[in-house]
Design a binder for these strands. Structure first.
Lengths: 224, 224
DNA sequence: ATCTGTGAAAGCATTCACAGCC
DNA sequence: GGCTGTGAATGCTTTCACAGAT
């Protein structure tokens, strides 16, 4: 219930928690009900120190000398990461990236998270009514209504970079609590709205760089 | 020509270099031919120190008291990032993510990078011959031939997690120089092959976490 | 004896201050 | 004077070593 952190959590920790959760789910399916920081570290390919430190940001979930109960730790991680609920989403900007994102069925049925698309928006009249995954593209003016009626949590911005701030303002006004920005620009939004930046092709760009510079090894990872 | 770095470069620096390049390209289009670390920093929303430090990893491109020549710096960054060439790519695994990736037209015509798909591969016989973006899905056995004849640089792994290592082995044998791994597992490959990990939905997961924990602010960014 | 939880040390990346060149 | 390039300082993340619980 009560989260401990007064300090800020490394972003990388959050990514790793998702990994631990995936491992725990898999252990559970195999009928294994106890594990240890060593075993989790082995699977996640990080150090056991790292596993324990990551968990320590949120509380104490193990028993000294014993390890962790798979079921308990799995539940705790689900709670911390927000997986006991569905996340309602909208896409603003139905260009090529928005369409690809709407068409991508994976995130709806990811075995961990439950993200659900509730609306698709654009300002281009020629796109109105276009059907994608059972939703029809609506005008941005209808965004607020959609957000209120469906209890939309987050919006994905996939408009051209020069329109990104407008889209963020519209999402703010509509009342979403978080924005995932695919446009390569930093958004200015009010403090109570979470913003995460996504560079869709960052992986390819880094890869191109490291192929070109084989003597440089990527030591920092995840990121994405 | 000669790259300076003996030290390892922060991964975040590479992402920022791409940002600087985008800004320089835009300045050039506007006919502006001189700029400064201050101006670049303003646009990129980082500090001027950061801009200069990032550039310093690769050499000296400015003139003290004067700033940078847009044209020169743009060219240098293009060279460093590998944008004077085309990157030939293949996708291994034509499930939902592989299909979405093949269908996504954006990375082919990105105004900075030139990535081109040269082949689509799977092991499932029922997928063979399936058409996507002018390419037909081939059996993984034909991967090596494709890589040799087209000079393929990198492969994207979009197979289920338990098949990811096999896909990596096949790509290694076929002779690619880099692998972009979308499966949530760490691959073991020979040292001379660059591997970058991509978590397609990491942004959404982080966002869910920060919406749930509004008192925690994301301070580390980009990554992606 | 075992394995967690955590303060302290080490390792990196960012920020800073200023020396060095126009 | 102005602005870059860079060693030194700061701040954050990871690693470590060990105290503490069973």
């Amino acid at each position: 219930m009560s989260q401990k952190p007064l300090l800020s959590i490394p972003n990388a920790t959050i990514s790793r928690l998702v990994t631990y959760l995936r491992i725990l789910t898999s252990l559970e399916q195999k009928g294994i009900n106890r594990t240890s920081s060593d075993a989790l570290a082995e699977e996640a390919q990080v150090s056991a120190f790292q596993v324990r430190k990551d968990l320590a940001y949120f509380g104490r979930f193990g028993t000294r000398g014993m390890g962790y109960t798979v079921l308990t730790l799995r539940r705790e991680l689900q709670r911390i990461l927000g997986l006991n609920r569905r996340w309602n989403c909208v896409i603003v900007g139905m260009g090529r990236l928005g369409q690809a994102l709407a068409d991508y069925p994976g995130y709806m049925e990811s075995n961990l998270y439950e993200f659900e698309l509730k609306g698709l928006f654009d300002i281009d009249p020629s796109k109105m009514g276009m059907q994608l995954r059972g939703l029809s593209v609506q005008h941005i003016n209808d965004l607020e209504h959609c957000v209120r009626t469906h209890g939309v949590d987050m919006g994905f911005i996939t408009v051209p970079v020069e329109k990104a701030q407008d889209a963020a303002d519209a999402l703010t006004k509509a009342g979403v609590r978080g924005i995932l920005n695919f446009a390569p620009t930093a958004l200015k939004v009010s403090d109570d709205i979470a913003v995460e930046q996504v560079d869709f092709m960052a992986g390819m760009k880094r890869l191109a760089f490291y192929i070109l510079n084989p003597h440089l090894k990527a030591l920092t990872d995840q990121e994405e």
